[in-house]
Each structure stands twice: as C-alpha cells, then as structure tokens.
Design a binder for these strands. Structure first.
Length: 600
RNA sequence: GGGGGUGUAGCUCAGUUUGGUUAGAGCGCUGGCCUGUCACGCCAGAGGCCGCGGGUUCGAGUCCCGUCACUCCCGCCA
C-alpha cells in the first residue's frame, strides 16, 4: 500500500463502498459527539468525512486531533444512510470508517482559521500566506489562474505563436516608470534594471525573424500600489507579430480573449465582435478611454441648446470660452441622460453627490406629466426643454443631467457621474463581459507642466500617415496606430503597430523634443536594429492579473496572486526587502547613504 | 510625497455622539456532557496597555495634540 494514500480526499464515491482505503490530508473540522466523532479530512482535491467510535483503540488519537493537523487515515468506505447523505459534498454519499489514524504533523492554535474563511486582516493573511492559501476561495482563485494560464498557452500555441524567454537582468530604460536596479559586482558603479516590460526585446525578436512571439512575461515597475495593481511586479501576456497591420493583431488576439472569457467566465455572455471606438469618440460618449459598455448611457453635446439661452450660468460660460482649440479651450455643455431617474429625490441626491466630489453641483431636468421640471427647465423654456427631451428620447419618469465647462477639465467628472447614474438606477448590467477596442489614440499630447509636446503613449508606435504626417500636420492632430482593449471598464491591455523605420523614429523623437544624440544614447541598440532590415510589426500585451481578477470577480489583485507584497511593497512572509551583510555590499561596491530619520 | 478611513479579546465588531460603577457580543480557544453530525448542540472557563506617547480633567476606550500601523485614493504607472 502507498505510504500516504490510495485515494485523494475528493475521490471516494458510492462505487468505492466496501473498499479498504488510505487517505491523507489536513484536519478541516472535527465534530465530537462523545459517542461518535467525525473528522473532515481535506486535501487539494476535496473533503472526506471520516468517522470513529470510542470503542476503537485509535479513538484517543482521533480525539486529540486539532484543526490543520496533517493525518493519515486507514479504513473502509461505508455508504451513508439516506438521511445522513450530504448533498453539498461530492463525496457526501460515503464516509471512511476509521480503522487506524496516524498524525503526520501537528499545528498550534491558528493565527487565522482555514475553515469558514472569515475576513481577516491582510497583514496576518500575508504573514501566514501558506494558511491563507489553504482557504477555499483563494485556493480556487489560484487554481483558476493556473487553468487560465494553461489555456492561454494552448490558445497562443494553436494560433501559431512561439513562447520565448527574454532577459530579467537588462538595462534601465529612460522613460516610463521607475526601474528596479541591481548593482553589478563585475562592473563597479554600474547597474542592471529589471524590465518594465519586454518591449524592446520582443521587437528585436521580430527583427530577428521569429515572426510570432508570446510570453507570460513578468514585468517590474517601482511604483506605488493600488487595489488593482501590485507594487513591483505583475504579468503580461506579451504578444508581437511580424508583417501585420492593426487588423491582423485584432484578428489574432480577439478570439483568444473571447475564448478565454467564454471558458472561464461562468457562462456570462461575452462580446462577440469587439466594437472599435476611436479615442476621441470614447472621450465624448463616455468621458474616458476605458468605458464600461455594460452601462448603456451615452453622453452628448447639448451646447447649442444653452448658447444664448435663459439659463445664464451656462450661456455666459459658453460665451466666455469660445475661441481656442476644441476640447482644450472651448466650453461645452454635456447631457447625461438618466432613464428612470426622473424624481426630485434622485436628482437632488446626484446633486449632493456632485458637491461631495468637489463640484459646484450637477444641473438637471426631470420629466413628469409631459413637461420638464427643475430650475434649468424653468430658465430654458418649454420649447427648448421639449427639444432636448425628444433629442435624448426621454419620457416621463426620466431625467437628464448637465455638466458644463471645458471638456478636458470636466470629462473625468462626467465619466464618474455616468458610472454612478448607471449603477444607482441599475441601468448597468452586471452579468456579462463587454469588450471593446479603443483605437486611434493621439500620437502626442500637450504637457501642461513642461509646456511641450510629449509622447502620449508608446514612443515606438507608428504614427498614422507615417513620415508625411509628422512633417506636415499639427503634432497634436496626429493619430497613432495605438490601441487598447477594455473589458467592463477595465483597461486590459494596450498595444501598437510599431515604428520600424529609423527616419520616422528620428522625426517623432524630434517632435517630442529629444535630439538625435539622446535618442542614440538611450535607444542605440534598438535604432541600430531598425537599420538592418526590420519587418513591419506590432503587438499587444494584455495584463494577466487583471484578466484573472475579472474572471474571479474580485477587485483586489492580492486575491489572485499567490505571494503578493503589501501596499508598502513588503513581503511579510519572506521578509523582503531586507538588509544585507556588509560583505555583500562591499562586493557590490555599494555604500549606504540613508535618510536622516533612519540613520540611527 | 499628499489626502480620507480604520485601530477595543486570537478574529469580526458594539461601546466614542453627551467623559462617570466591574469594557460587552458572536466566532475561535480550553475543559465537561452528548451515537449521525457536516456552520453539530448544551454547560462552564480562560483571554483586554481600548495601537503607542503626551495633554485637559476629580475622573479618559470616550475630548485635544502628536505618532505608528493597516487600508483606500491622488501623485506615479513609456
């Protein structure tokens, strides 16, 4: 007989009745009836109820067993009588009649219980992560993550992609997030950096002729944490393809994500053809570039109704800012329709919410008995109010809210108002995955602080219109072959068709104010590669952690990460970051220069 | 770097508004009883620097100041 088990704890069924079996696992729960004692033995695969009576010589050992001890049980599989069958348990039709029980290892009183998994403080969960991981929900999340990654590998390989590894110790890159640095022992004063993403490597893989690359790639960025963002490290499904246009990338990636969400999304509907929404259209309809399309509300420009109208606040606002660039300098009034929000109570609640958000308020009209009500309607007049109502297809019992000002300043607030209205009125669906592509991102944007044009996303993206556009157009008008995938309001990934031509690269960096020497110094290797026959190529990099979060229905990344750090970027289980010995520092030619408060 | 929230038993929380006797409950833990439970049940018990430091007061879990920890957000995240 095997030293520890003939069956796992999730395996025994009715057809095993009568068999002599051996199972091993953790003591999940003990129920002591005095004359009868039940032990639920748990392993990765499930739970098996074991039972023993006081007449048994092994009873004392069984009685002493405590939660999370590891035990081995030998016994016979018995059928449970009709009224004692537990239908909640896959093994609930049988139980193991204990013949002998061995304690394989013990545990003291637990710092956090495994059974029942009540809420526990995160620092304790992280310090005792090995216990936390035994708990059903987290254990299942981690297994789901493993299944998702296996499925991704299968789908990518089936799609003709090859998985390659890229370096972990690499060079610091000039822009982007803060790097994690690793001092070099052999080169005093020099440092490696951990890659923020294998961006340049995957492009080099294309230039090297490997055609289709993917990797479950670790990425390292020394940035502060959020609930949905680990400090330090995360994973991307990194993808790059040669001889492709934007459409080819979409056709390769869309089925992978759709299939993944259909496989693991618990049967919730998944968008079939992902709609493509240009960046500026998304900003106008939703106020942001990662719209949650489960929310049906679309905003629209209602400025023409207010210009010169009796509602003086908006009318004068529109007058005052009516010269400069659209979006940046011109004032507008946006309408947010709210079907079913047509009561003074709801409108007032939204108004106080807006004030709590630091806004002066949130103007509204609500419709009842065939007419518009509220201060704005009064000042606007019945004719204009009815035009608005028809234009927005609103009826009695509906409302419309207004935000006014310069779009670049209020868009973010309008987006939050749209989300809140959708949720509060239960217009936003909850049981589906709504995907879209956001396309046509601007290549450059205006950096208000530095007073200069800056890359708005990836400096390696190909501008639409190529060199000619760079030479002839207003830089802020130029679009890039740059795209995002958004699901349920979560930005899952961004990608681009890359700039594979050195002269366009030079021009693009020139527009962003980097001279050729800087470009040469920072991206010399990349530039050199581009001069030796680079294929047109492009790719994308969906965030694995965020995909798993969506599929596990959690908003906290630590619920889908096996060994996460806390928000202060500490690993409480392993004790990282930690101090190192003087000898290690000497070898690395590093001397500490600690801030004053920590010197003592 | 900045802002908000929280901090009371091993854990989840009540008590703080309005300062006043011995700081409570549930879960967990320990012991006892219990032959069909599966969130077993019943009885008893242990367990508290009320985050820490200072202040106001006859008196502070409660009010004030500072500080620390955790958490959420902003900055940051090509």
């Amino acid at each position: 007989m095997h030293a520890y088990r003939t069956h796992t704890c999730g395996e025994l069924k009715k057809q095993d009745v009568g068999a002599q079996v051996r199972v091993s696992g953790w003591v999940h729960r003990v129920r002591d009836h005095g004359g009868l004692l039940f032990i639920d033995v748990r392993d990765h695969y499930g739970l098996t109820q074991c039972v023993i009576e006081p007449e048994n010589a092994e009873f004392a050992k069984a009685e002493a067993a405590r939660a999370e001890w590891v035990v081995r049980v030998d016994g016979r599989v018995d059928a449970r009588s009709g009224d004692t069958v537990n239908t909640n348990l896959p093994t609930g039709e049988v139980e193991v009649r204990i013949a002998s029980l061995e304690v394989l290892s013990q545990a003291p009183e637990l710092p956090l219980p495994v059974f029942g998994e009540p809420d526990y403080p995160e620092d304790i969960r992280l310090t005792y992560r090995f216990l936390d991981l035994r708990r059903e929900t987290l254990h299942a999340n981690i297994m789901k993550r493993a299944d998702i990654i296996a499925s991704i590998r299968r789908r990518m390989t089936d799609g003709g992609f090859f998985e390659f590894q890229t370096p972990i110790l690499t060079a610091s890159s000039p822009e982007g997030a803060r790097d994690f640095l690793v001092p070099s022992r052999m080169h005093p004063g020099k440092f490696y950096a951990l890659p923020q993403a294998p961006q340049q490597f995957k492009q080099l893989v294309m230039i090297a002729g490997f055609d289709r690359y993917f990797q479950i790639a670790p990425c390292f960025r020394d940035e502060d944490a959020r609930a949905d963002r680990s400090p330090g490290e995360f994973y991307q499904l990194d993808i790059e393809m040669s001889f492709v246009e934007q459409e080819d990338v979409f056709n390769a990636v869309e089925p992978v994500l759709r299939g993944l969400f259909e496989e693991f999304g618990g049967g919730h509907p998944v968008t079939q053809g992902f709609p493509r929404i240009p960046y500026w259209r998304s900003m106008r309809l939703y106020g942001c570039d990662k719209p949650d399309l489960r929310n049906p509300i679309e905003m629209s420009d209602a400025s023409h109704h207010f210009r010169g109208s009796g509602f003086k606040i908006f009318a004068s606002l529109l007058d005052k800012h009516d010269k400069g660039r659209e979006w940046f300098d011109n004032a507008e009034v946006w309408a947010i329709p709210a079907k079913g929000g047509g009561s003074r109570a709801f409108c007032d609640r939204m108004n106080s919410w807006a004030q709590g958000e630091g806004q002066p308020g949130l103007g509204y009209i609500f419709f009842r008995e065939g007419e518009g009500a509220g201060p704005i309607a009064k000042n606007l007049g019945e004719t204009v109010t009815q035009q608005l109502r028809q234009e927005l297809d609103l009826h009695d019992g509906d409302a419309v809210f207004f935000v006014a000002g310069v779009p670049k300043d209020f868009a973010e607030f309008a987006a939050r108002a749209r989300v809140k209205i959708g949720e509060d009125l239960e217009l936003t669906a909850t049981d589906r995955f709504e995907f879209c592509w956001i396309v046509d991102f601007p290549m450059f944007e205006w950096d208000e602080e530095e007073k200069k044009v800056e890359f708005s996303h990836n400096p390696f993206s190909m501008p639409q219109g190529g060199l000619e556009a760079l030479e002839t157009k207003d830089p802020l008008e130029i679009l890039a072959w740059q795209y995002d995938i958004v699901c349920n309001g979560v930005e899952l990934s961004s990608g681009a068709i890359r700039n594979h031509l050195p002269e366009i690269m030079n021009k693009a960096f020139e527009i962003a104010g980097y001279d050729r020497a800087v470009l040469e110094e920072k991206f010399g290797g990349m530039l050199r590669a581009l001069t030796f026959g680079a294929p047109p190529h492009g790719g994308i990099a969906p965030g694995i952690d965020r995909i798993v979060m969506l599929l596990c229905g959690t908003e906290n990344i630590r619920e889908v990460t096996m060994f996460p750090m806390n928000q202060q970027a500490e690993d409480l289980l392993m004790g990282a970051p930690g101090e190192v010995s003087a000898r290690q520092l000497r070898e690395l030619h590093v001397r500490l220069n600690l801030p004053a408060s920590e010197k003592e």
